[in-house]
Design a protein around this nucleic acid. Structure first.
Length: 1043
RNA sequence: GGGCAUAUAGCUCAGCUGGUCAGAGCACUGUGUUCACAUCGCAGGGGUCGCAGGUUCGAAUCCUGCUAUGCCCACCA
């Protein structure tokens, strides 16, 4: 036909190094990845979970993206108009933090040294570098994204969507400004997120302070005692709390302790016993006083805040634990998270006493201007002098520190922007409860719904420089009149009338200290702040506002705000683009479970808000990849694997197939990792110890290599030892097996001619393979569509290796040699290989593409029913459909009969150590039916087991001194003649017989159990009966041999 | 503290709605290289399915409790 291959011109391994870039480039050049918004076929679209530009992709990303690519390639072959939308995420704080860290390490500078603009420029440089790296990694993995559409959450298109959304929510008054306690870093003068706070035990004190009761009545205490680790915060106290039902609370904790004591191990008992006694004692000594104080609190009584002589409330609140300290607790709502909650519950004033740089402000009276440390000393000294300091205990304190400046964190009440979640959260819940959005596996829906049902408002402002700056301009108005005037001015702007602009008035008790600096006590009537939002970025209008005295909000938005818009912002929203109309809503989102709430839930609510429609129909949550110790992989632990290292060692297909093969529904993927020695390629298990070393010595060649921790110049000069996992070997071997099967097939295509093949022309093994192919096609398709990747991978692995290679190809060998039978065998093998390549292509795209291309040279037209010219690229080939006419359970059953007889012969060969070159003779006792089936297959016993059949049929009797194996109702005997250890064979049969007798007894017992016979289904009972009969026959058969 | 998972061969995992479900791969043992593939072929050994109860004629499979591990959320004056 056309070019023939020779064994020499066809390497026996697929060389990825040489081929993968070429193949990928061809895909790109021929536009295989491009989605067409004018194509009217049904669509299938996926948006990528945009990787953070903080660094390179790791194995978790590789998994995530492999699963997406498998799905998109499947759908593309199934004839959908597919879009896989790629892009990256600016990842707010994470990216700013890495760039700041480098700045500090390499130049010894802080971001304040650079200024906002310069820092943001640096981060853009970083982004450029890592985005390139990330996209490069995705391409190496074979991801078929539509690269021309690549977006970034901070690019102009996304920025416009963010701005438009923010304005819409602002106008609906879903966005508001409120106070919130943040972790304030007084050194960097910024809020830091919870993730960036570390806790450290430090030595401190517990000060017990007395607050005088105002106008104590006879019988009432004159003081309440409170204890604190931070006496200076008392300057911001606005209440003292006592439990509303101290008796019940004590009882409850006593009962809990008793319960714990009852089940506690011996070693913990002593401590628990002491605690229990303490509580019992409290009920005796303190309870009356606490009840009295509670009553006073309910009466609205007050205490005097020492030093400032301020009257503060006595409140009844559950936060005051009667089993702790004095049972009373001071409440500082503006400087403690728990007290803040109490403040909200009890409607207490919140007095901020700090300036942003950590000194005390005007609210602290005479202590104004002191640092926290100074004020603590002064406060303690003054209290002591006033005789109000009762006791000072030494105590270890769990103190929060800022990760970045290493200074203690101050809880600090600051202005923050919030999104009201009431309606938005509800819409997002409804989408899942009514099934418009389906989550797989469905157990993850629970977490999603639980989280949303709290409907907690979403704080969206971040005190960062990297991100979408909040598009709000604000101005504080000192008086009613100023406010009215300012609003009048606003209302005259044409943009206000046209709805491109909106404003909100916020009335607060105090201006934000963080934003406005130290303004001292509030003026009567509070502050009024006008917030103005503008729909689109219009420089003129923004300038105009600045001139009117408005100042733009400095904070940026939470990075998840832009991520939440991803499914529609990437398609051009708010422009009503053709792509948006075509590809929204997307089909499936594939992501990891830790961002179900942060991201998935928010995409749903923003999609509904902006588009009026859900963003995706299905969500698949895939497992996490853990290392051999069950720990999550991360760069900071040193156990992270770079997908490129795996690709380098095993090839991209092995990476993908390996990952898909591990993606089961219930389990996380545990993947022990190894260092690969760069000198001798030995794999060494990574231990918790060696993974933290800058250099490691190979256990075999003793050559040293560097790890990611290499810092010193000597270490860095050593060759790098990549981290890989031998879990990919299986997949690499599988690809090699496929390659060689293809190599064999293509080397035997000489004289191939495509032609329709009739059923009558097909050999037994052809019909068997076609039947199997049809079932596998059906099951693989179903599995992939149900996100059962591991199942699909396993089925294809077994089919390709065991059935196609080990049986079909072996059996086809002789036919391919013979002139008269060659043609049909070639057509069948070409067709089946063609179909197998298609089924495997989504998982292993490179090797299947290469084989496809080679196959096109010798067998361009393929197919048994309707031979057709193969497509140029396998990416464009049609996904196989099951062929009901090929499905033949009877032939599959018969074939397994053949397999078991073959297996029996091979087992005897191996058991008796008969060399492969020694021909043996065998006979088979079986029914006439089986005889007529297997006798024609004698040549396969010859070629696949070097065994010659001497007798078939129901009357065949074993000769003495033969080895036997029974499979089902077929007995196979091999005449041992002069080879062989006859006594060993007898011994073996004796053991086998004993085992069977035991089984027979078990079954007899079961069948004499009336309950079983009466209650179990008839078919189950029958199966037991049949089994018993068969076992008895087997024993008889063995006995014959043993004679 | 609340929630969600997981526990099956030395290792990594399958085993969907209870009765051919005790399996796969790696590792191990034996054996075999002109004839697609040693990244291979053929064969073999190895597990009372975390523990304790319960439901059932029958449980790796369903229920309860316990233990261990992981993850998410909350909290830690």
């Amino acid at each position: 036909m056309s070019t023939e291959f020779t064994a020499d011109s066809f390497p026996n391994r697929f060389d990825y190094g040489e081929s993968q870039d070429r193949i990928y480039q061809q895909w790109e050049e021929t536009g295989c990845f491009s989605a067409d918004e004018n194509d009217t076929r049904p669509t299938f679209s996926i948006v990528i979970p945009p990787p953070n530009v903080t660094g390179a992709l790791h194995l978790g990303h590789a998994l995530n993206n492999t699963l997406q690519d498998v799905l998109i390639r499947l759908k593309r072959m199934q004839g959908f108009n597919t879009l896989w939308m790629p892009g990256t995420d600016h990842a707010g704080i994470a990216t700013q933090a890495v760039v700041e860290k480098r700045l500090r390490e390499e130049e010894g500078k802080t971001r304040h040294d650079l200024g906002r603009e310069a820092l943001v420029d640096r981060i853009w440089d970083w982004k450029g570098q890592y985005e390139k790296r990330i996209l490069g990694q995705l391409k190496k993995m074979g991801c078929s994204c539509d690269w021309e559409r690549t977006r970034f959450t901070l690019d102009d298109v996304c920025a416009r969507a963010v701005r438009s959304t923010f304005f819409d929510l602002f106008r609906k008054e879903y966005i508001y400004r409120g106070k919130r306690l943040v972790n304030w870093d007084t050194f960097l003068q910024t809020a830091v997120s919870d993730d960036e706070v570390f806790h450290e035990l430090v030595k401190g004190h517990f000060w017990h302070i007395r607050y005088p009761v105002i106008d104590p009545q006879p019988g009432e205490p004159t003081h309440v005692t409170v204890a604190t680790t931070r006496p200076e915060t008392m300057l911001g106290d606005t209440a003292v709390a006592v439990h509303p039902d101290p008796e019940a609370a004590l009882q409850k904790s006593e009962a809990e302790l008793q319960a714990r004591l009852d089940s506690a191990p011996e070693k913990d008992r002593e401590g628990l016993q002491a605690q229990l006694e303490e509580i019992q004692q409290r009920r005796e000594t303190m309870l009356p006083q606490l009840i009295l104080l509670r009553d006073m609190a309910l009466d609205g009584r007050r205490v005097c805040l020492p030093l400032l002589d301020r009257e503060i409330r006595l409140v009844a609140d559950v936060w005051a634990k009667p089993e702790m300290g004095s049972g009373c607790v001071k409440i500082t709502p503006a400087h403690d998270p728990n007290d803040y909650e109490v403040g909200l519950r009890q409607d207490l004033p919140m007095i901020n006493i700090l300036n942003p740089e950590g000194t005390l402000n005007g609210n602290a009276g005479d202590y104004r201007g002191l640092t926290i440390a100074q004020s603590r000393k002064r406060v303690v000294a003054d209290l002591e002098e006033a005789g109000l300091l009762v006791e000072v205990e030494d105590r270890e304190i769990d103190l929060a520190h800022s990760d970045r400046s290493k200074t203690p964190i101050e809880p600090y009440l600051a202005d923050q922007w919030f999104v009201k979640m009431e309606q938005l959260a509800q819409s997002s819940m409804d989408a899942v409860t009514d099934g418009r959005v389906k989550i797989f596996p469905d157990r993850y829906a629970k977490g999603y719904l639980d989280w949303l049902s709290e409907k907690r408002d979403w704080p969206v402002s971040r005190q960062l420089w990297w991100g979408h700056q909040i598009p709000i301009w604000s101005q504080v108005c000192g008086s009613e009149q100023a406010l009215t005037e300012a609003i009048d001015v606003l209302k005259k702007l044409p943009q206000m009338a046209s709805g491109e602009m909106a404003y909100q008035v916020e009335i607060s008790e105090s201006a934000s200290p963080a934003a406005e600096g130290d303004q001292g006590a509030t003026e009567a009537g509070g502050y009024a702040t006008i917030h103005v939002g503008i729909e689109a970025e219009v420089a003129e209008l923004e300038d105009q506002l600045e001139q009117l005295g408005y100042r733009r909000e400095q904070d940026v938005l939470d990075t998840w705000f832009s991520s939440a818009l991803w499914p529609h912002s990437t398609l051009g929203w708010p422009e009503q683009t053709a792509s948006l109309a075509r590809f929204y809503p997307t089909s499936t989102l594939i992501t990891s479970r830790d961002i179900i709430t942060l991201w998935v839930a928010r995409m749903v609510l923003m999609g509904i808000n902006n588009m009026g429609e859900i963003p995706f129909e299905q969500v698949f949550i895939h497992p996490k990849i853990l290392d051999g110790y069950g720990e999550t992989m991360s760069k900071s632990k040193g156990n992270g694997v770079d997908p490129l290292d795996v690709i380098e060692k095993f090839g991209p297909d092995a990476l993908r197939f390996g990952l898909a093969h591990l993606t089961t529904e219930t389990q996380d993927v545990r993947m022990p990792v190894q260092f690969e020695c760069p000198h001798c390629a030995t794999l060494m298990d990574q231990t918790k110890k060696n993974r933290e070393l800058p250099r490691v010595a190979c256990k075999k060649c003793e050559g040293e290599f560097s790890t990611q921790w290499a810092r010193s110049p000597e270490d860095q000069q050593l060759p790098r030892g990549p981290v890989v996992s031998e879990r990919f070997e299986v997949a690499r071997n599988f690809c090699n097996k496929l390659w060689n099967a293809a190599r064999f097939a293509l080397l035997n295509m000489e004289g191939y001619s495509p032609q329709e093949v009739t059923a009558a022309e097909l050999a037994f093994e052809d019909r068997w393979l076609l039947s199997r192919l049809s079932s596998v096609t059906e099951k693989v398709t179903q599995s992939l569509e149900a996100y059962q990747y591991a199942e699909a991978a396993r089925m294809l692995y077994d089919f390709a290796w065991d059935e196609f290679c080990s049986f079909y190809v072996e059996m086809a060998k002789s036919r391919l040699q013979a002139e008269d039978s060659q043609a049909v065998a070639q057509r069948v093998i070409a067709h089946c290989l063609d179909q197998l390549l298609r089924l495997l292509h989504p998982m292993i795209p490179f090797i299947t593409e290469e084989v496809w291309r080679l196959m096109k040279q010798v067998a361009p037209v393929r197919g048994l029913r309707n031979p057709r010219e193969a497509t140029e690229s396998i990416m464009l080939a049609e996904w196989p459909l099951p062929v009901p006419a090929d499905h033949d359970p009877e032939i599959e059953a018969q074939f397994s009969q053949f397999q078991s007889v073959l297996g029996a012969i091979r087992e005897i060969r191996s058991r008796q150590n008969i060399g492969p070159k020694e021909q043996i003779e065998f006979s088979v006792t079986c029914s006439e039916d089986v005889t007529s089936l297997l006798q024609p297959m004698e040549e396969f016993f010859q070629s696949m087991a070097n065994a010659r059949a001497v007798a078939w049929g129901p009357d065949v009797e074993p000769s003495t001194g033969c080895a036997t194996v029974r499979r089902g109702d077929v007995d196979v005997y091999v005449d041992l003649k002069d080879f062989i250890d006859v006594s060993a064979e007898i011994e073996r049969n004796q053991r086998l017989r004993d085992k069977m007798v035991a089984q027979i007894e078990g079954k007899e017992k079961k069948l004499t159990n009336e309950n079983f016979v009466a209650r179990a289904p008839e078919e189950v009972v029958q199966r037991e009966r049949d089994g018993l009969v068969q076992l008895r026959e087997e024993v008889v058969a063995i006995d014959k041999v043993l004679e």
